[in-house]
């Protein structure tokens, strides 16, 4: 078939149109990076790397340091992983290895619905349900543990711990549904071989199935971490929004995403705006790296499709 004939039938045109659409993805990603870079130039020039190590956040005097926000972001994400990883992997093991297929599918369906709940709804529950609840539960416990610096100080309901808890609820569905898929993809022979030796169900799962699925599970944790780092609304609503650094998990704090959400619309000075956009740039680069590693892990584990 000649080129003219194919063109008449529209193949070349279709090829071009669809190619442009596919390239739009790449274009958007490049534009995104470029916009964040060029719109943070003032802050980058003035503060350099000092931006990330300074803990002064004073819009009035034009002094901007991101450390309290970086600290809050890392701490809340760490707390959320601490809770969500064991629970999520436990649930994934139950759903893939133990539960009858019907029950497993029904529960997975519900877990996926949990993943679909908008972040502002988690914030709503956080403010009006979780905070009052923790205000009752935490102080008596903290009174016994106050010799530990991480449980020191007074507790007002909004804190790193509250934000970490809300985040853990938000990321656990991703760990469960991805890890479940990864576990279910482990070849049956892997299980049968060990079962034939008389091992218990748990031994088979823990020593033969989980190690086989290790890379995929770690990948799911990375993906969840990227979510936790960038999560905005729910965290903004329960972390207290104070740009300080505290060792105590019960203190209010701030995160990168939360400070952008709260202050961006009211930032009138160019330097202020650029400082906030530089924080978005930091968040962008970090989540890119975490996501890229997660996807690479998944690819090397032979998982091409990740349903989110």
């Amino acid at each position: 078939m000649s080129f003219a004939e194919r063109l008449r039938k529209g193949d070349e045109a279709a090829y071009l149109v669809t190619l442009i659409s596919a390239l739009t993805i790449v274009l958007i990603t490049v534009l995104l990076a470029q916009h964040l870079w060029s719109n943070s130039v003032l802050a980058r020039q003035k503060f350099g790397f000092h931006f990330l190590t300074s803990s002064t956040w004073d819009p009035l005097s034009g002094n901007f340091g991101a450390l309290p926000f970086v600290y809050g972001t890392l701490l809340t994400s760490f707390i959320s992983l601490l809770i969500a990883v064991p629970v999520g992997i436990g649930a994934a093991i139950f759903l893939s290895e133990l539960a009858p297929r019907g029950i497993s599918n029904a529960l997975t369906f519900l877990v996926e619905l949990l993943a679909a709940v908008p972040s502002v709804i988690f914030g709503l529950i956080g403010i009006f349900v979780l905070v009052p609840m923790l205000n009752v539960v935490i102080p008596p416990i903290a009174a016994h543990l106050s010799f530990l610096p991480i449980f020191g100080g007074s507790f007002f309901g909004v804190s790193y711990l509250t934000a970490g808890l809300v985040l853990s609820i938000m990321i656990v569905p991703f760990i469960v549904s991805i890890s479940r898929e990864v576990l279910m993809a482990v070849p049956t022979a892997q299980r049968e071989a060990m079962m034939a030796l008389g091992a218990t169900k748990w031994d088979v799962t823990w020593r033969s199935v989980v190690p086989y699925a290790r890379r995929g599970i770690i990948g799911s944790i990375f993906l969840a971490l990227a979510r936790a780092l960038g999560e905005t609304m729910a965290v903004t609503m329960v972390i207290g929004n104070v740009p300080e650094i505290h060792a105590s998990l019960l203190s209010p704090g701030y995160t990168i995403a939360a400070v952008i959400a709260n202050e961006f619309a009211e930032a009138s000075e160019d330097l202020y705006l650029h400082a906030l956009i530089e924080m978005a740039l930091v968040l962008f680069v970090v989540t890119m790296i975490v996501n890229a590693s997660a996807r690479l892990l998944m690819l090397t584990a032979g998982i091409r499709e990740i349903r989110e």
């Binding site: 905005t232 952008i260 956009i277 990740i306």
Partner: peptide, 24 residues
């Protein structure tokens, strides 16, 4: 390549997307 970029773009925090569209 496109698939990988797509997954990365999908992972960009929504607040960062907000800033991008603000500048755009």
């Amino acid at each position: 390549i496109v698939r990988y970029t797509t997954d990365l773009l999908n992972g960009v925090p929504s607040i960062v997307m907000g800033i991008f569209v603000y500048t755009l």
